[in-house]
Every structure is written in C-alpha cells, then in structure tokens.
C-alpha cells in the first residue's frame, strides 16, 4: 500500500454563483486516521464531503483520494472509487419502500454479482454490527431516526469501504442515541481500521471519534489539531465557537 495521506485536498475553491463556499481549502488525512470538521451551519461542510466523493467538482484545486484525482475521474472510475468509500447522509436517505434488510442489500444487489446467500450473510453481519438485526424486516417509516441513521451506516458499510464520510451522524438524535452512534464509529475504526472524515456539531462526538478536529469557516480550515489543542487554542474565533461545549 502507498504511504502518504489517503485524502489530500489542496487549495480547493468552489463557488455557487456569487457565493464562495470553499476558498483555498487544504487538508490531509492519513490511512486509518479520523478527521472531524466543525463549523457554522451553512458554511459548506457538506460541500466538502461531496467533493471528496465526486458529487461536486471544484472550480480549482486538487482532491486526491486513495491515489486518484477525484475531479478528473470518469463515471467508471468514480464508481470504482465509490466502492471504496462509504457516505452516511445527514438524513439517512433510505429508500422508503424497501425493508431495512433490502436497503442494506441494495448496493450489493445492484453493483456486484454476489449470490443471495452471500448477500444475506454480509447484510446480517453489518446489521449485527449496528445492532439492528431484529429490525431487518421493518420499513424505514416504522423505525426511529436513530435507527434509520444506523441503517444508513450499515448500508454504507456493506461494501467494505476503506474510507467513510459521516455527515452530522448525531443530528436529530437525543444525547444518549448520539453517544451510542459515536461509540459505534469508534468501534468501527478500531475493528475495521477505516479512515474517516466526520462533520459534526457535537463536541462530545468530535472528541470521541476525532484524532484531529478542524474548524472550518469562510471557506478554509482555521485550525486543525488534536481535540485538546483545539480547546486550548488562543484564536478568538475558535474560542468563541467552542466556548459552549468547553
């Protein structure tokens, strides 16, 4: 395996019309490392994740993921890259007419030639991992928001990604549920050695899962350091933002 960072973002700019969302964004994530990005709502954190997985293209700058320059990938290359990546959506984004089981099985059925029995054993193992095996025949409308999030996580994990992107994994969950999702993320990292980038508004979540926490504002990362260092930072904006959790 190649050394060096798995994710390398260099001087990325992105504007939607007159609105400049990314303005010289730079960061790197090493293999097996977990980066947490925090910042004001609507500042462009989801936009960062969408660039990493090729849903958005930067106006300029370079985005390298697992040795591939994402903006230059053609559809086939992008599909290949996405097989190595998982994405947990802010609102789970499950297909509501499919059961929990079928939602998780979907990527395997659609993109691999695995047999139903191979699919079943894989789906069972990830549902076990997120502790949802008992809910496998329920539909998304019949389960709680926290459970939907975990189904989304199981669906993201079923293809054995090496890199996983979490968009506000704790959003809409009560503190207990949120803590349990954080524990699950930590566990996944330790058991499966995944590289991850997490966007969150929750300091407890950031502290639990992050090797590094970055503060994103005005299109760039202002600080990018270990959680303890972020809290100790003397940057006034960072102090202001993290004042409450601290």
């Amino acid at each position: 395996m190649s050394e060096g960072p798995v994710i390398r973002v260099q001087d990325v700019h992105k504007a939607f019309g007159p609105q400049k969302v990314l303005q010289g964004l730079c960061f790197e994530v090493a293999r097996g490392e977990s980066l947490v990005i925090m910042g004001p709502s609507g500042s462009g954190k989801s936009v960062i994740l969408k660039h990493l997985i090729g849903l958005l293209r930067p106006d300029s700058g370079s985005i390298e993921v697992a040795g591939r320059e994402v903006p230059r990938l053609r559809p086939a290359g992008l599909a290949e890259l996405r097989r190595d990546m998982g994405y947990l959506f802010q609102h789970a984004a499950l297909i509501n007419w499919l059961s929990v089981y079928d939602n998780v099985a979907l990527p395997l059925r659609e993109t691999t030639s695995k047999s139903e029995s191979e699919i079943e054993s894989k789906v069972y193992s990830v549902l076990e991992l997120v502790r949802l095996l008992d809910a496998r025949s329920k539909f998304p409308g019949e389960i709680s928001g926290g459970m939907q999030k975990r189904v989304g996580l199981a669906r993201a994990l079923v293809t054995d990604p090496e890199i996983i992107l979490y968009d506000e994994p704790e959003a809409g969950l009560d503190p207990e549920m949120s803590a349990s999702v954080s524990r699950m993320m930590v566990k996944l990292r330790h058991e499966l050695g995944m590289t991850s980038v997490t966007v969150t508004h929750s300091w407890p979540c950031a502290e639990a899962v992050g090797d590094r926490v970055a503060f994103f504002e005005h299109g760039k990362l202002v600080i990018d350091a270990a959680p303890a260092e972020v809290l100790a930072s003397d940057n006034p904006r960072v102090q202001e933002f993290f004042a409450v959790p601290k």
Binding site: L55, R82, F89, A93, P107, T111
Partner: peptide, 14 residues
C-alpha cells in the same frame, strides 16, 4: 430533496 437519489448515486446504483 431527501437526498435519496444522491445516496443511490454514491452507492453506484443506476
């Protein structure tokens, strides 16, 4: 609008 189409895209579902 619920990003389900984007999710299918990310999962490489046509």
């Amino acid at each position: 609008v619920q990003e389900e189409l984007t999710a299918l895209n990310v999962l490489s579902v046509n």
